[in-house]
């Protein structure tokens, strides 16, 4: 039983560290702040969660504490990325786009609405 838990934990640790790496690679490669937030938030949330749960599985005494850490990460990461996205458009950082002009209609609308208030 212990053996199985250990192997499962090690697999989760490897997956987690790979996703953490991909998240960081994402914020390095993506062209603008919104895309960086997308890559940074999603990949590091799952990466951190799976790494910490992995450690909790290898070390069963720590499972309770690692579960608290995981819940905290799952709740706090989307909130901070939402706040950052809001601050990015309010400080008028234009989103990168390469498709049609109308992909930005909603952006212009929300900026105008923001200025009128």
């Amino acid at each position: 039983m212990n053996q199985i838990l250990e192997i499962l934990g090690l697999i989760l640790i490897i997956i987690g560290s790979i996703f953490l790496f991909l998240g960081a690679l994402g914020i390095y490669r993506m062209p603008d702040v919104y895309n960086r937030l997308q890559a940074g938030t999603k990949a590091t949330t799952l990466g951190g969660m799976s790494l910490i749960i992995g450690v909790g599985l290898i070390q069963p005494d720590w499972f309770w504490k690692s579960l608290i850490l995981v819940i905290f990460i799952a709740l706090s990461n989307p909130i901070s990325s939402h706040a950052l996205a809001r601050s990015a458009y309010k400080s008028k950082i234009k989103p990168f786009f390469k498709g049609k002009e109308e992909d930005l209609d909603a952006y212009k609308e929300v900026v105008e609405r923001n200025e009128n208030n």
Partner: peptide, 12 residues
Amino acid sequence: VISPSLPINPGI
């Protein structure tokens, strides 16, 4: 992120 051509088409 991994694919070299960065297949994104972002918008709001």
